[in-house]
């Protein structure tokens, strides 16, 4: 016999069993209440960001995700909790920092796709370490300028230029005295 929805009299289409601290918790929901609980995506053309938000919310209750809240990207300082709130990552390195947490999410959002297939930039030359170092140096430089610590800013600017020489005509960092 068909089971009824826990919340109304309609037929349940979503069934789940969770073991929490040794106790079995069953849940049976109809399409509407499942959608309400973020368990299913009811609308055919759900805007993609909503899909993502639902998915992130759905998976935020588990213990693994609770622990993940504390995760921080060591390049840009974004926390996983902040990502969950805004569904935007902070820098390219975040994909690595949160890889375990976002992989299932990516597969869900991309119809099972987990690995890139397609165009690869010809200029893939500059190493990832170098790019991450640049991101970090630029963050520190901005903090230094905000604090008006121009001595440190000038040093950081030189470090940046050593890694990435300024292109002719570039206006980069013209706001630092002594530039």
């Amino acid at each position: 016999m068909d089971r009824k929805c826990d919340k109304c009299n309609r037929r349940a289409t979503h069934h789940s069993v969770e073991i929490v601290q040794g106790k079995k918790i069953e849940q049976h929901l109809c399409e509407t209440h499942a959608a309400e609980a973020g368990l299913s995506i009811k609308a055919v053309n759900t805007p993609i960001n909503e899909l993502l938000t639902n998915f992130v919310k759905l998976h935020s209750g588990g213990q693994a995700m609770t622990a993940a809240q504390e995760l921080v990207c060591d390049v840009c300082g974004l926390t996983f909790a902040e990502f969950r709130e805004h569904t935007l990552l902070g820098c390219p390195h975040c994909y690595q920092a949160f890889e375990r947490q976002i992989s299932p999410l990516l597969e869900r959002a991309h119809d099972g796709g987990g690995h890139h297939v397609g165009k690869v930039p010809r200029r893939c030359g500059s190493g990832q370490d170098r790019q991450e170092q640049l991101t970090q140096l630029r963050q520190r430089l901005d903090e230094a300028v905000t604090r008006e610590d121009y001595e440190l800013a000038a040093r950081l600017r030189d470090d940046i230029h050593r890694i990435c020489p300024p292109s002719p005509g570039s206006t980069e960092r013209s706001d630092i005295p002594g530039n």
Binding site: L51, Q96, K119, V120, R122, R123, Q131, S167
Partner: peptide, 27 residues
């Protein structure tokens, strides 16, 4: 291609072109 001549784009072999929102990542 023309932009790529002098700009380094954020790219990873696994995730492709890296974007702020994970719903655009890859191509």
């Amino acid at each position: 291609d023309a932009l790529e001549d002098s700009l380094d784009f954020a790219f990873s072999p696994r995730f492709g072109y890296l974007t702020a929102c994970p719903t655009n990542v890859g191509t």
